[in-house]
Simulated assay, not measured.
Amino acid sequence: MVHYEGLPEFVAARGPALLRSAFLLTGDRHRAEDLVQTALVKLAPRWRRVSAAGDPETYVRKILYHEHLNWWRRRGQHVFPSAAPPEPAGHPDIADRTVRSVLLRQALGRLTAKQRALIVLRFYEDRSENETATLLGCSVGTVKSQTHRALARLRALEPGLAELLTDTEIPEVVR
């Protein structure tokens, strides 16, 4: 187990956050679990080298986003939300927030896989444009233009959420 020293602790500490991000990408809890598991299986043989580099979460998230895009390309279909997201305990259940959350998740489900990945990285995970570009393997200019297009599409798909969707923030309803 020396080869995997620290991996169980990493999975225990960061697994729930990875699962929440995967749920936002896939829209389905079971597919999200499969996606995280696939990413961790790909990480395991490289664990010693990746952990020695000092930032294993960035590495596994890159695997996560690329795997999601690969699944989407292979299946040639969009995945629509069908299950409740994994939420941290202790958050109040407020009807208005729930309605907005459902509407936003449905609209997110109608974006392309790349647009959805951009929205999740930029606004849910609060990644910078540079980090997002690195994780997705594209330029900063592409991140900016595609984020703008993704937000415009969200506004068009769900006009009732237009006041919530600015180019600089997506509110807590997706968290």
Rank of each mutant, 00 (worst) to 15 (best):
G90Y: 05
R149H: 12
P86A: 10
L40C: 03
L135M: 14
S128Y: 04
A162I: 06
G27Q: 06
A83V: 05
V50W: 00
H68Q: 10
T98M: 05
L24M: 11
L43R: 07
T132Q: 03
G141R: 07
T168K: 13
V120N: 08
R149W: 08
P56D: 03
A12W: 00
A150K: 10
E9V: 13
E67A: 10
G90Q: 04
V2R: 14
L151Y: 04
I119K: 07
L25N: 04
Q37W: 13
R149Q: 10
S82E: 12
L136D: 03
E67R: 15
R48C: 00
K114F: 15
V41C: 02
L64C: 02
L154A: 02
W72N: 00
S101R: 08
K114I: 08
A84G: 05
Y65M: 05
E125H: 05
T147P: 01
R100Q: 11
Q77N: 07
R74Q: 14
R61I: 00
R97Q: 11
G6L: 04
P8T: 09
A52D: 05
A39F: 09
L64M: 13
L69T: 01
D34Y: 08
H68S: 08
A83I: 00
G141N: 14
F123N: 10
T168R: 12
V11T: 13
L164G: 14
S21R: 11
T166C: 00
R175Q: 13
T147I: 07
V140L: 03
L121C: 08
A95Q: 09
G109A: 05
T132K: 11
A17W: 00
A22S: 11
A113I: 00
T142A: 09
D167F: 03
S145N: 05
D55Y: 00
W71C: 00
G137M: 05
R29V: 12
V41G: 00
P159V: 07
A12L: 04
W71Y: 12
S145H: 13
S101Q: 09
R49G: 03
E163K: 09
L136A: 02
L135K: 01
K42G: 07
A107S: 14
V60I: 05
T38E: 15
A156K: 12
G6Y: 07
G160N: 08
H3N: 10
A89K: 04
E87K: 08
V50H: 04
V2C: 06
P56L: 03
P8K: 01
A22F: 04
A44C: 05
H78Y: 09
R127L: 14
R74D: 12
F23H: 15
R105Y: 05
P92F: 09
P45L: 06
K114L: 12
Q77C: 10
D28G: 11
H3K: 14
S101P: 12
S51V: 09
P45T: 03
T58G: 12
R74P: 02
E9D: 11
L161M: 13
V50Y: 01
V173D: 10
L104R: 09
